[in-house]
Design a binder for these strands. Sequence first.
DNA 1: GCGCGTATATTGTGATCACATCGACGCCGC
DNA 2: GCGGCGTCGATGTGATCACAATATACGCGC
Lengths: 237, 237
Amino acid sequence: MSVVSLDTAGGDGKVHDQVYDALADALIKGQIPPLNPVSLRTLAANLGVSPMPVREAVRRLIAEKALELQASNKRLRVPDLTEKRVLQLMKAREWVEPELAALATPRMTKDAIRRLRDDDAKLMKALSSGDVGGYMQANQDFHFCIYAQADADLFYDLARTLWLQVGPFMRVVFGRLGTVQLPKDHHQDMIAAFESGDPEAVRVSMQADVREGMEMMLDVIRSRAEPEPKRRRAQSK
Amino acid sequence: MSVVSLDTAGGDGKVHDQVYDALADALIKGQIPPLNPVSLRTLAANLGVSPMPVREAVRRLIAEKALELQASNKRLRVPDLTEKRVLQLMKAREWVEPELAALATPRMTKDAIRRLRDDDAKLMKALSSGDVGGYMQANQDFHFCIYAQADADLFYDLARTLWLQVGPFMRVVFGRLGTVQLPKDHHQDMIAAFESGDPEAVRVSMQADVREGMEMMLDVIRSRAEPEPKRRRAQSK
DNA sequence: GCGCGTATATTGTGATCACATCGACGCCGC
DNA sequence: GCGGCGTCGATGTGATCACAATATACGCGC
């Protein structure tokens, strides 16, 4: 059984869109590790469709850099992240996501804020029980609940694209660090800033939240640069 | 004869990439007006390939929002720009492009700066002779010569995506305003800032350049909102 | 002459087939 | 036992076919 599966909700949407959603969801949740090879036919078989719609979904994900097609190899896989790349992703996230949050501030409804509290509660619970998947899900829900309020589709999609690229690596980060010493996240401050309707306070909270998360990832990237010198014939499993 | 054509340079590259490049080039140069419908089979016929690689290229361009697939209509076309969308594009461009320019500053070679002067000269010439196509080409060359030096592929691609979206509309802008009262562009200031190696000066010049161009586009968008009340049976051509 | 319904053509979508290329496995010879 | 080499399988890519849905054009009836 693969980590990807179709919605199977009413056959209305185009198949390649369902395939895209399934893959994007798996990627953004970190269910597909970096460097993991993916093949059209295998995916198609797992999803019970022909390779055709998978090709279109994959083409779209390649355009968003959520997948890559090795030039020499011509094999399809989840891209690895270099330090240079992470730095760019960090800068980009530090720009769009505070921007989205600031735009959302005057549009935040009582209901949305309630959902925010709810997501944050789920997040804390997952954190204390060591549920990585639950944590990532709750964190994603929290952030995108905000972004959806911003009424800025272009920025929203940009943020989604960025998350698509960092998603696979978040799982790696948690694998190294565990959910124990995670961040004191800034969700509480952010919620308070939303309630007082202060866009600038929201902005700084969001930026701090993004920055700290990405710096954690940066540390992991850097720490894995040298510490595995040779490791001949010492494969795991 | 269509405005799109293949490179026909050695059959090395994948066909769908050539198709993508051809379409992207036509779009970024504004050779395909907004709301212009395109069809897979027509494009395929014009390019002398099967509809298959065209589908992949188009799928990629849809992901980049350079094309859109009308939900109801299910017809493929170049997206129109709303004011809200232009404002987001402006904000995004005002962030990435100065960022790219600042990153490029310490990496600017003598040769690159020479090319910048060359492009700017071509730009001025095209401007005085009213050559819209030449102006857009020279302006594109100028900007992306800078961005290529930044060594920041993620930002570079983001800038490309944004240009892909504004491209079709630039031609519309020129159609309304002509090349006459174009901007005093900030290219000279920018080149000077590059030579003195001042990233902040480069940043402000680039931001001013982008901002003024986009404000021009914004004016056109706003001015076309109401001024054509009915205009029944007054089709051009 | 004009409106409306039908027929035709064209559209995007999905499936299937054909092919060149590359990796992996296994066999043979040393 | 082990290295080189050939075969087989899998991969992405492209072409062609089939199909449902829609826009467009034509013609009939009023």
